[in-house]
Design a protein around this nucleic acid. Structure first.
Ligand SMILES: [Mn+2]
Ligand SMILES: [Mn+2]
Ligand SMILES: [Zn+2]
Ligand SMILES: [Zn+2]
Lengths: 139, 139
DNA sequence: ATCGTTCTTAGACTAAGTCCAATCTTCGGT
DNA sequence: ACCGAAGATTGGACTTAGTCTAAGAACGAT
């Protein structure tokens, strides 16, 4: 498996020195399509790696954010969540389950941002809330 | 001053029994144009009212949210914030100061929300981040 | 192999928020 | 005005997410 080697290279390209812990964390958090919180990362990683501490998980997640591999999202109370999809997109929060669903950037058009007086906008996103509709069975 | 009477009536119209603490909290949090956190509310209210507890501040803020007098916003880590402006609008977060600025609903146009497949959107807002531009002196 | 740099760790600590049982207020009925 | 039940408030213990620290382990260049 070149899997591990790929991740290692990816970290090094971003100026991050590899370590067993960082590789294990990266392997999960950079590949997931969910939006896990730090404690979820800890659980998942601790299940595969003999020993990894909470401090290291937080250190690593912050490092990955700083190096542009991850984005930090705050969409609901008490839940800071990490997103490996760093390109701009929107988020839908399911009010029932708390699940966070990505909404592609092209799915919505937002007009008027450059015209806002007095505000220098560096980034924005639409945050939507509601219920996920019952998945229509197709086929 | 009919001020206090007005607030009292407003609470009662929303099915909230008045009390010294609730009136004091309402007087501040329903009138501010800021987006205060619970601990700010506690500080401000404690300065005027002889005694008010943290538990009561949290109870009251939650009650006001439940009764539709206030909205709870989570825009940055560790800061749950209350907004007396309950009609839909957008928010800009100043990355330098942390200040939250209201952006009128009409200032932005968002298209495509009803067309999102599989999502029943009950509400949405645009969340913007950046720097507040130096206030241009006009006149 | 050595040594300075970097990384990880356990556990103490902080801050935001919740919970609870005891006490105090409010308010409608008399 | 008085009473009692329902409702509100309280201090303080508790929980949870996250930070900090000082000591040790791993790394990697020489
Ligand atoms: Mn963080
Ligand atoms: Mn809350
Ligand atoms: Zn995402
Ligand atoms: Zn607002």
């Amino acid at each position: 498996m070149t899997q591990r080697t790929d991740i290692r290279r990816r970290l090094e390209e971003h100026g991050i020195q590899a370590s067993a812990q960082r590789l294990a964390i990266a392997e999960y958090v950079l590949a997931t399509d969910q939006h896990p919180a730090a404690d979820t990362v800890l659980e998942v990683v601790a299940a595969r790696l003999p020993v990894v501490s909470r401090a290291t998980v937080y250190n690593t997640l912050h490092l990955f954010v700083e190096k542009g591999l991850l984005r930090e999202l705050v969409l609901s109370e008490g839940r800071v969540v990490y997103d490996p999809k760093v390109e701009p997109h929107h988020h839908f929060v399911d009010e029932t389950s708390g699940a966070i669903v990505d909404v592609p950037w092209e799915a919505l058009r937002v007009e008027g941002v450059p015209e806002l007086p007095g505000l220098d906008v560096s980034e924005f996103q639409v945050v939507l809330r509601g219920r996920r509709r019952a998945r229509r069975r197709d086929g």
